Lab assay of single mutants.
Amino acid sequence: QSFTCPYCGKMGYTETSLQEHVTSEHAETSTEVICPICAALPGGDPNHVTDDFAAHLTLEHR
């Protein structure tokens, strides 16, 4: 399964590499985005909106 960065649209990330990408490239970004990992999880929330995606990844998807 691969994920797309909700900020810049780059594709092909794993859960881990998406977290690394967001932390390095978009750490200061506070735009509201939908978490693509939550959306892909069975029973996950397809509409989970977060305005601190880097922190959300760290808390929810480590």
Rank of each mutant, 00 (worst) to 15 (best):
I34M: 05
H26V: 05
Y13I: 09
A39F: 03
P42F: 05
V22Q: 01
A40D: 02
C8L: 00
T23K: 12
E60R: 04
T23M: 15
T50L: 10
T50I: 12
E20G: 13
D51H: 02
C38N: 09
P42H: 11
H61L: 00
P46H: 06
G44T: 15
H56R: 01
G9T: 09
A55Q: 09
H61W: 00
T58R: 12
A40C: 07
C8D: 03
H48P: 13
T16P: 15
A39L: 09
V49I: 12
S24L: 09
E60F: 13
T16D: 09
C5K: 00
C35A: 02
A54D: 01
C35I: 01
L59C: 07
L59P: 04
I34K: 09
H26T: 11
A27K: 14
T58I: 10
E25W: 06
M11S: 13
E32Q: 07
E20P: 10
T23I: 12
P6L: 01
G44N: 13
L18C: 00
C8M: 00
P6F: 01
T50Q: 09
H61V: 00
H26N: 06
G44D: 09
T58M: 09
T31V: 14
T23L: 11
N47F: 13
I37F: 01
K10Y: 01
I37E: 02
I37M: 04
Y13L: 14
E60L: 07
C5A: 00
C35L: 01
S2L: 10
R62F: 05
H48M: 13
A39T: 11
F53G: 05
T4Y: 09
C38K: 10
P6C: 01
P42M: 05
I37P: 14
L59H: 06
P46G: 05
G9E: 13
E32L: 06
T29Q: 06
E15W: 01
T4V: 08
S17G: 11
T16M: 08
F53W: 02
T58F: 06
H56W: 00
A54P: 09
Y7F: 13
T31S: 12
E60I: 08
S2Y: 07
E32N: 09
N47G: 14
C5E: 00
T16C: 12
D45Y: 07
S24Q: 14
Y13A: 06
E15D: 13
D45I: 06
T14M: 06
A55T: 14
T29L: 08
E20M: 04
R62P: 15
N47R: 13
L18T: 06
E32G: 11
H21T: 05
C8A: 00
H26Q: 08
P42R: 07
H48Q: 14
H56C: 04
K10V: 07
R62I: 14
C8Q: 00
P46T: 11
E25L: 11
H56Q: 01
H48C: 13
H48D: 13
A39R: 13
D51Q: 15
A27M: 03
L41Y: 14
G12S: 05
S30L: 07
T4R: 05
D51R: 14
A40R: 07
L41P: 08
G12H: 01
T14L: 10
L59I: 11
A55L: 10
P6T: 01
H21K: 04
L41K: 15
P46E: 07
T29I: 09
L57I: 08
A27W: 06
E32S: 14
T58Y: 11
S2G: 11
A39C: 09
T14D: 08
G43V: 05
R62T: 15
T16K: 09
E32A: 13
G12R: 06
C35F: 01
V49Q: 05
V33K: 05
A54N: 13
T50V: 15
H26G: 04
G44I: 14
C35S: 04
M11F: 11
V33S: 03
S24A: 12
P46Q: 01
G12F: 02
G43W: 09
S2N: 13
G44R: 14
E25T: 11
Y7I: 15
H21R: 04
T29M: 12
A54T: 12
L57M: 07
L59G: 10
